[in-house]
C-alpha cells in the first residue's frame, strides 16, 4: 500500500443543495459511507472538483462541531461553480480533498477564546464566517458578547438570511446588524455600505474583530476600525488567492515569504503589514 499523495482526492456525495440567494447555493457533502469527509477547524478550506470541469478551493461553511457533514456555500462565478449550480443534484458525486490552510484562532485565549467577538461580513464572505459563528454558538460559554454585522447588495443577496433571523439573532448575548446596498420596499433595516453602517452603530473597542469580505470592503472597514480606536492586533481577516495544490508547492498563492494555502488564509491584520500588498 503506497502512501497516498495529498493531491489525490476522495469521492464525496452531495446530499443536499440549498438555494441561498439567486447566485449562491449551499452544497452539503459527505463521504461515500455517509460520514463527514474529514475533520477541520473554522476558516479551513477544501478542494472540490468535478472531473473534466475543474477543481477549486472553497471555504468550509460548517463548524467542526457539526460532525455529520460539511457545507460549502458557493457563488456562481466561473466554469466549475456554474456547472455546480446548473447541473448538480442531490446524490451526485464530487471529489473533495483537504482540509487546507490555518484556521481562525478560536481556541487561543490570546486571540478569540473568552473574548467579545464582532463578526463583519460582506456578500458571499459570510460563508467562512459561518463556520466560526457556529463554533462560537456551540461553545457559547467560552466566548463573550457576539455582534454580527453583515451586508449584501440586496435583500435577496443576504446569504443565510433565514438562519440569521431565526437562529443567530435569537442566541443569548448576541446582536445582529444587517444592511443592504440599495433601498428595497420590502426592507425596513439599514441601507448603506458596511463601513458606513459600522460607523453609525459605533462599536466599542473591547472586542476581537473577525472580518471577511471583498477586498474593497475590507480596506474601507479597516480604515474605519482604526479610526475608531481598534488595533490591527485585534482584527483577523482572510486572504483569497488562486490555488491549485493547497499544500504550498504549486506557487500560485505565494505572497512574500507566505503561502496563503498553508500560512493563511487567516491572518491577523498586523501580519499583513509584513508582506507585500499583493492581495
Amino acid at each position: 500500500m503506497q502512501m497516498p499523495d495529498m493531491l489525490i482526492p476522495q469521492v464525496g456525495i452531495i446530499t443536499d443543495i440549498i438555494q441561498e440567494t439567486p447566485d449562491v447555493k449551499t452544497f452539503r457533502v459527505v463521504d461515500l459511507k455517509g460520514n463527514k469527509a474529514f475533520d477541520h477547524m473554522p476558516g479551513q478550506c477544501a478542494m472540490l472538483s468535478i472531473p473534466g470541469v475543474g477543481e477549486a478551493m472553497f471555504s468550509i461553511s460548517t463548524s467542526p462541531t457539526n460532525t455529520k457533514y460539511m457545507d460549502f456555500s458557493i457563488k456562481r462565478v466561473g466554469a466549475l461553480t456554474n456547472y455546480m449550480h446548473d447541473k448538480m443534484n442531490p446524490g451526485d458525486h464530487i471529489t473533495i480533498r483537504g482540509p487546507y490552510g490555518n484556521a481562525f484562532p478560536v481556541d487561543d485565549a490570546n486571540a478569540l477564546k473568552g473574548k467579545n467577538i464582532l463578526f463583519i461580513g460582506g456578500g458571499i464572505a459570510l460563508a467562512p464566517l459561518r463556520s466560526v459563528i457556529h463554533y462560537v454558538f456551540d461553545n457559547r460559554d467560552d466566548y463573550g458578547y457576539v455582534d454580527i454585522l453583515y451586508g449584501a447588495r440586496s435583500v435577496a443577496d443576504l446569504v443565510y438570511h433565514r438562519e440569521i433571523e431565526k437562529s443567530w439573532a435569537e442566541k443569548r448575548n448576541t446582536n445582529v446588524f444587517l444592511t443592504i446596498d440599495r433601498p428595497d420596499d420590502a426592507w425596513e433595516g439599514n441601507v448603506g455600505f458596511v463601513p458606513d453602517y459600522f460607523k453609525k452603530i459605533g462599536f466599542s473597542t473591547d472586542k476581537v474583530v473577525v472580518m471577511c469580505g471583498p477586498p474593497i470592503m475590507i480596506k474601507f472597514v479597516l480604515a474605519v476600525l482604526l479610526e475608531m480606536g481598534f488595533k490591527k492586533e485585534q482584527v483577523f481577516t482572510t486572504l483569497e488567492l488562486r490555488m491549485k495544490c493547497g499544500i504550498g508547492k504549486c506557487g500560485r498563492c505565494n505572497i512574500g515569504d507566505k503561502f496563503v494555502c498553508m500560512d493563511g488564509p487567516v491572518f491577523r491584520v498586523d501580519e499583513l503589514d509584513q508582506i507585500p500588498e499583493e492581495f
Binding site: 493531491l7 472531473p51 473534466g52 475543474g54 491549485k244 495544490c245 508547492k249 504549486c250 506557487g251 500560485r252
Partner: peptide, 9 residues
C-alpha cells in the same frame, strides 16, 4: 517548480 493542475478528458 510552480505547476498547474488540469484535466484531460
Amino acid at each position: 517548480s510552480c505547476y498547474d493542475i488540469k484535466d484531460h478528458d
